[in-house]
Amino acid sequence: MAFKETLLKSKKRLLQMHFESGVGHIGGNLSCLDILMVLHHQIMNQDDQFILSKGHSAGALYITLWSMNKLKDEDLKLFHKEPTKLSGHPAPKWREEIIFATGSLGHGFSLASGLALAKRFKNKPGRVFCLTSDGEWQEGSNWEALIFAHHQKLDSLTLIVDANGLQGFGSTKEVASMDSLTEKFKSFGIPVEEIDGHDLNAIEKALSQNTKGLRAIIAHTTKGKGVSFMENKMEWHYLPLKEPEYQLAIQELDKS
């Protein structure tokens, strides 16, 4: 199956999973699903590691693992149910692909730095990728991590920011603007590339570059991407799908 078809199928499966479970966080899952899918299907190999710092996008990660046959439909049925390992934020000590349970923001980039440092000390190959949200950069610990990762020259580390512009109770511009995050990262001496986080070629190209040194990719994305009534809507950070909304969303994806 061509990658684009796999991606469409995965988006539909994501909506189905959320609909059947009756839970939200759909908007942020749709903003990063393209990135997670390209990263896991086209970039990462067995030596690479990934940390989902924006743990509230666990659904997108579960679906990505499902698309790689690492989770089954029976597993996805347990999303947000009990007993389950597919909790709203990734659970610890469960799957090798989920090295750390996350959920509280501002931890992932430090954890990823630890993994990159471990590769250096153990002389192991591979890259470490970390996906954060944009609002998450209001956490001070992320800046501690940025200073550390740059100073330690953690060459294998790539930071990806899912910049969808919306956070828990408003837009990032309104709540605590960090414009421009790119300039702030650059001022730390870190190379930054800005991409359209839904342009599959741009994602693949940006993530393929494995130049020496820590790199940051700011992926401009749309919360609720692909479903018109969800796109850039604050409420889809939280709301579950009702039956008519679910059907409409599937129809829209089919037409895309």
């Binding site: 090295i99 750390f100 931890h107 630890g114 471990a118 991590a145 550390f148 100073h151």
Partner: peptide, 22 residues
């Protein structure tokens, strides 16, 4: 490693290292 005046980062980095057998 002098991790600097950044204890939050230092602990998570330590967790990352420990997860890899260090």
């Amino acid at each position: 490693i002098n991790a600097g005046v950044s204890e939050q980062n230092m602990i998570s980095v330590a967790a990352g290292l420990a997860s890899q057998g260090l």
